[in-house]
Amino acid sequence: MVEKGGLEKAKVIIREDECKGCGLCIEACPVDVLFEQNVLNRMGYHPAGYKGEGCTGCGICFYQCPEPGAITVFKKGYVEEEVT
């Protein structure tokens, strides 16, 4: 997974298949860049999604989310190789 501009911009990735649609991340995001998707995932939940812009990399959503692997937050200045 390589994304241009990663070094300049923070971002969040949500693994839709691990998301249980609890909405806690959406509720907690201070800049309101997360939303509930219309699709259903394999478990039948509406997963959270990233609007694609505006994430500050604050990490709040990660610490609200009960699923260990559902959310990964990339802070500004992250290095791509770190993604495994």
Partner: peptide, 13 residues
């Protein structure tokens, strides 16, 4: 790859 906890459960956090 996912826990057995309910959506929004505090245990996971």
């Amino acid at each position: 790859d996912v826990t057995h906890y309910c959506p929004g459960c505090g245990h996971g956090v």
